[in-house]
Design a protein around this nucleic acid. Structure first.
Lengths: 242, 242
DNA sequence: AAGTGGTCTAGACCACTAT
DNA sequence: TAGTGGTCTAGACCACTTC
């Protein structure tokens, strides 16, 4: 898979992000859009697109008629739920050095729930990959990914420790576009608790989610469990349509 | 507080949303942007802004070079976590007729955690409003909002059952802009369990969140608990920057 | 090759904030 | 009143999909 060059907008965004995090701006104030457009030699539209992305990420906020400002509290947020892609990255963002152990990696018949999620027939083969992520020695995340076996290319698979979105590109030629995630509180059962190193019945967060590719076809069904005492998620909630 | 007229973009968005949900489009295919611009008599930019919002909400998806299509799975999603504003609305979206009971409504000294969240001094007065939301008879959501007493105007308060964002506009002249929410799995304690009508120790989802106004100042600290068996949240997760 | 969405430009005018 | 972000236009060219 090839990726396109960064757009002008993304380059502007990266440039501004650097100025923001390195504190190169007086009073946390970002220069007017017209000035940025002039200085960087691009149109105001391009500047505005970049600022819109930064605002959505919580890095800045804008006040009509007043100006654009750095959003200090927003900058502190790691692991923004709507943007999580790999748990390796999440753990790194928290300052951990993550390690991965593959617990299960085999093809088996999919259960009903998975078949429904992946729009395949019940009993169709799926590749099941179960992984445990640790920070140093403490287990933090337990995940179970299920991919329709029909999507697998004939290439021999090696290195299933890679993040699932890389695996899908490498061995299925599918690019993960988004997840639809359901957030469920659970009391961990004996097996899950043992793997995560906590007492049975501990309250934990879990995700039950389906990943879709660019053509809007389901490609992976994932369930994940988290040690709440070691990893906590944040989210920015805005009014619909804003 | 006055609200501005819907922008052209929002009008276009509403128009398209209606065509989408009422199934007025052949093959779930949305007309090309140039055609929409011509038909509606607006520029392509306006059309694209409206489509971008609809795509972000999960109602449609776009394929470069191919077209724009209705996203059936996305249309089914109610209570999108990033966009929740009032629990009344959430319960209505689920087809319930919600009712609200105000359990607590008084001014008291804020605890340390709330003081830190609201950037006030520990011990400063806060207005505490605790509410229980029911669908028919079953309790579903328990919330506790804390607002700095210093924000209250002198007007006599009546009708504290209104949604918190309305309350803030009415009695504090502040408009809620966004929440920063932390998602926490808990085992309900005796008091919480009793109010929600479940067994003590039941796993539940909770939010611990701070609401900010347009000037990026914290105006409300909220904690909420949910009956997972009656209400479940979904979320669309995308790659950062997309 | 034709058609579609993606990016970018240059400029106009409006709404709101600060002073 | 000056300056800022918000909205909108008209048009150009590019990247990708489809036939």
């Amino acid at each position: 898979m090839i990726t396109r060059n960064p757009s002008l907008t993304d380059q502007v965004k990266a440039h501004l992000k650097e100025r923001i995090v390195n504190d190169w701006l007086a009073d946390g104030r970002i220069p007017p859009e017209a000035v940025l457009a002039e200085d960087l030699g691009v149109s105001r539209t391009t500047i505005r697109d970049a600022l819109a992305k930064l605002e959505h990420e919580g890095a800045i906020f804008r006040k009509q008629g007043a100006g654009t400002f750095v959003n200090e509290p927003g900058l502190q947020i790691k692991s923004r739920l709507e943007e999580i892609w790999s748990y390796e990255q999440v753990l790194e963002d928290h300052g951990y050095t993550p390690s991965v152990e593959v617990l299960i990696d085999q093809i088996m018949a999919g259960d009903e729930e998975t078949a429904a999620a992946l729009a395949i027939a019940p009993g169709d083969d799926v590749l099941v990959i179960e992984k445990l992520f640790r920070e140093d020695d403490a287990p933090v995340v337990l995940t179970r990914n299920r991919i329709p076996a029909a999507l697998l290319t004939d290439r021999e698979r090696i290195g299933d420790e890679m993040p699932i979105y890389e695996f899908l590109e490498e061995y299925c030629s599918r690019r993960l576009a988004y997840y639809v995630s359901e957030i469920i509180p659970v009391a961990l059962n004996a097996e899950q608790a043992k793997k995560l190193g906590v007492k049975r019945g501990t309250a934990a967060l879990s995700f039950d989610e389906v990943g879709f590719d660019q053509n809007n076809e389901p490609v992976v069904h994932a369930t994940s469990y988290f040690r709440d005492d070691l990893l906590r998620f944040r989210l920015i909630r805005r009014k619909a349509g804003a």
